[in-house]
């Protein structure tokens, strides 16, 4: 059992990403964060998941100044590596292509982000409320900046 991630795999993976104009932001021993142009994300995910045995761990949404960052965490379990692909969804768009149609495991994850951060996933089969209560007001997103508990009174 080697302790570090298998280098050749990371190299291959990084060349693939570089071809698509991705930038490596941080690289730690067994994990890395890459920022990816938004149009290239879904094809890349598809490629990694179907060809490289990657597993989607989860998607993190973060509210930043210019919009919402979506972080797709991919586990390369065979190679002891976790790659995080980061895209920025501009506030004016607030929508992203859904990956649920070909990866049903992402269904709940996307619905959660829709609830908490207000990102619309286009092409998602059931973009309904999942984890907020029935009396939660529409259009209030608890993980956005400046959210106050008082805003969410029923």
């Amino acid at each position: 059992m080697s302790d570090t991630a298998t280098p050749s795999v990371i190299e291959r993976f990084e060349t693939k990403l570089c071809d698509e104009h991705a930038i490596c932001e941080t690289r730690k021993e067994r994990q890395g964060v890459y920022s990816v142009p938004i149009a290239k994300l879904v094809p890349l995910l598809r490629d990694f998941i179907s060809n490289d045995n990657a597993r989607l761990a989860t998607i993190t949404g973060i509210d930043v100044r210019d919009g919402t960052e979506l972080l797709y965490h991919l586990c390369f379990d065979d190679h002891k590596y976790v790659a995080t692909l980061k895209v920025l969804v501009p506030r004016t768009v607030d929508a992203m292509e859904s990956i649920t149609p070909w990866l049903p495991g992402a269904e709940f994850i996307e619905r959660e982000i829709h609830d908490l951060l207000g990102i619309d996933f286009t092409g998602h089969p059931r973009m309904e409320r999942l984890i907020l209560s029935d009396d939660w007001p529409e259009g209030v997103y608890p993980l956005r900046r400046g959210f106050k508990k008082e805003d969410a009174q029923p």
Binding site: T58, F108, I109
Partner: peptide
């Protein structure tokens, strides 16, 4: 697998802390 993501800006508190519990991906199956 319990999966956490933490972002820090050097302050006292995390800026973002994402928690994904194993059941969240197991239940949809």
């Amino acid at each position: 697998e319990t999966f956490h993501y933490v972002r820090s800006d050097g302050g006292r508190c995390p800026v973002r802390h994402k928690i994904r519990a194993p059941s969240y991906v197991n239940v949809p199956s």
